[in-house]
Design a protein around this nucleic acid. Structure first.
Length: 499
RNA sequence: UCCAGCGUGGCUCAAUGGUAGAGCGGGUGACUGUUAAUCACUAGGUUGCAGGUUCGAGUCCUGCCGCUGGAGCCA
């Protein structure tokens, strides 16, 4: 009887005879010894097959990358093994000898990787991201569960186009138009009136034709909604929530963060309280000469960094000229390409930033923040930034008017640090029937399809509010990724549906 | 949708308008401590598609298709 164990448990099983099962990440042969790097989803382990075990040795003949195998043997400590332990194989069984695996252990272009997303998921980097994504989702559920929230599943097929029909995916629903959910919020409000504290978690769909590193057409959003909550309560909830997510990842996924090369110190800085400012204060900050001075200084520093990068790239050219080993030359070439990419990004930034600074100086109260304003503001802090009370014209009809400044609404956006942008958007909701009806009329909306929503303001209306957190943008920030497409197993983007 | 760039063996990339090449991966052989092993040999191509210019096009021109990056919009 075989007792299969997981690779992650091996360091506690030294000296014991066990079986492992998994996939061959790499196999090297030196004639009378084979090195099998086996992965099983919990980790990877070097397995040694010596010619002294002829049956096992022969069994692995012709067994290539990503073949599925079962290996039995004794676990032993071994400093020469990457994991510190290795399996001395005495029995081997090939479950299936795989065909030539398309993704070699070297650099590939993004198009090729995306076309092979189903196989790319097996790489160490992708499994690390998937594990962190899992942790963030689990921590989010735990957070709301611990605080007495009830999970409410809101519909994905929704009637009518609420805001901006162009941003919704239309589908045929038995001959009538229906739309894929853009948010569960309106339905969630009804549940908050039933249960007090509720949240929904599901996919949401945006038909915006956005081709950027921050956009997906299908992404996951977790949205709490709470009765008797006002804007201040939402601010507190959002910061506690984000801190909980970051802490969960720092506690359980150090290895994955390190595998991704993430700067953990930047995450450790994320603690309460988060900096807060109103939209009007943020506009004031954009106009502040002190900020302009800081931005100019930053610009100069980045210019210097750019010059250093260019110098290093040139030095590498010289090194390349002197290198004979082909594979070493290729390795250096790859490093150089990475630097070139970084230099290219930086060059673009340097080219655009002066314009952004000018935009900031000229920013007019009443405009919505663009990506560059958000980036300038959030980069002034080492933790997420909460901005509240935006002009009502740029925000949705259901947001509650701010009595202290009627030009604005009681909303909040939370911007992740390091330029990752908005990860939370939310608001206190308009709870006055008359005010909501007036706002809808102002927007030219037909109230008929919203009567059920207006009913919430007729039968025991209370102050309430909530927000939505985009899972993928959060994963992207916490993992320190350059593109959101790696944060979800099968990204759906403008112009990409496969696989 | 707009702007820019790129499409060459399985992959990553070379090739003044003049004989399509290298590395990796695959195959064969050698090697008992490899870490992207090393060494030798070997197979592998309608240069995205359709036209055009030219004695001659991977290279130049036009159109199309695909991809990538950026902008707007947003989580």
């Amino acid at each position: 009887m075989r007792s299969f164990v997981e690779i992650q448990a091996l360091k506690d099983l030294v000296g014991q005879e066990v079986w492992l099962r998994g996939w061959v990440r790499a196999i090297r042969s030196s004639g009378k010894i084979r090195f099998v790097e086996l992965r099983d989803g919990t980790g990877s382990c070097q397995c040694i097959v010596e010619a002294g075990e002829p049956e096992a040795f022969a069994a692995l003949e012709g067994c290539g990358q990503e073949s599925s195998v079962c290996l039995g043997g004794v676990v032993r400590e071994e400093p020469r093994s990457p994991g510190g332990v290795e399996l001395a194989v005495s029995a081997a069984e090939v479950v299936q000898a795989g065909e030539e695996f398309p993704i070699a252990r070297k650099e590939h272009g993004i198009e090729f990787l995306m076309q092979h997303r189903h196989l790319w998921l097996r790489s160490p980097r992708q499994t690390a991201i998937l594990k962190i994504r899992h942790r963030i989702i689990q921590a989010a559920r735990d957070f709301f569960d611990q605080q007495g929230f009830t999970l409410i599943d809101t519909p994905i097929f929704q009637p009518g186009a609420a805001e901006g029909a162009g941003t919704l995916f239309e589908v045929d629903y038995f001959g009538n138009p229906a739309f894929l959910a853009q948010t569960g919020q309106l339905y969630l409000e009804t549940a908050a009136m039933a249960l007090g504290k509720v949240y929904c978690f599901g996919p949401t769909f945006r038909a915006e034709k956005s081709k950027t590193r921050r956009h997906l057409t299908e992404f996951w959003m977790i949205e709490p909604e709470v009765a008797f909550y006002e804007l201040k309560d939402l601010e507190g909830l959002s910061e506690a929530f984000i801190c909980h997510l970051v802490q969960a990842v720092l506690t359980h996924n150090r290895a994955e963060l390190e595998a991704l090369g993430r700067d953990c110190a930047a995450l450790e800085a994320v603690g309460m309280p988060f900096p807060r400012m109103t939209y009007s204060e943020a506009v004031g900050m954009l106009h502040d000469p002190e900020l302009h001075g800081k931005l100019e200084a930053e610009l100069a520093a980045e210019q210097e960094r750019y010059a250093k990068l260019q110098k290093r790239i040139e030095e590498m050219d010289a090194e390349l000229a002197g290198l004979m080993k082909a594979w070493k030359r290729e390795k250096l070439t790859k490093e150089q390409q990475a630097l070139r990419e970084e230099a290219g990004d930086l060059e673009r930034w340097l080219r655009n930033q002066p314009g952004h600074i000018e935009d900031a100086k000229r920013f007019r109260w009443g405009d919505d923040f663009g990506g560059d304003e958000e980036t300038i503001l959030s980069r002034q802090f080492d933790r997420p930034l909460i901005i509240t009370e935006y002009p009502r014209e740029v925000k949705a009809f259901y947001m509650k008017r701010n009595d202290a400044d009627p030009r604005t609404v009681l909303n909040l956006d939370v911007l992740a640090p390091e330029g990752y942008g908005e990860i939370i958007g939310g608001s206190q909701r308009e709870d006055s029937l008359e005010a909501l009806q007036a706002r809808m009329a102002e927007e030219g909306m037909d109230p008929a399809p919203y009567e059920w929503y207006l009913d919430l303001r007729r039968f025991g209306s209370v102050p309430h509010g909530g927000f939505g957190l985009g899972i993928e943008r959060t994963v992207s920030w916490i993992c320190g990724l350059k593109h959101i497409r790696e944060t979800i197993p099968f990204p759906r983007m403008m112009g990409r549906m496969a696989p």
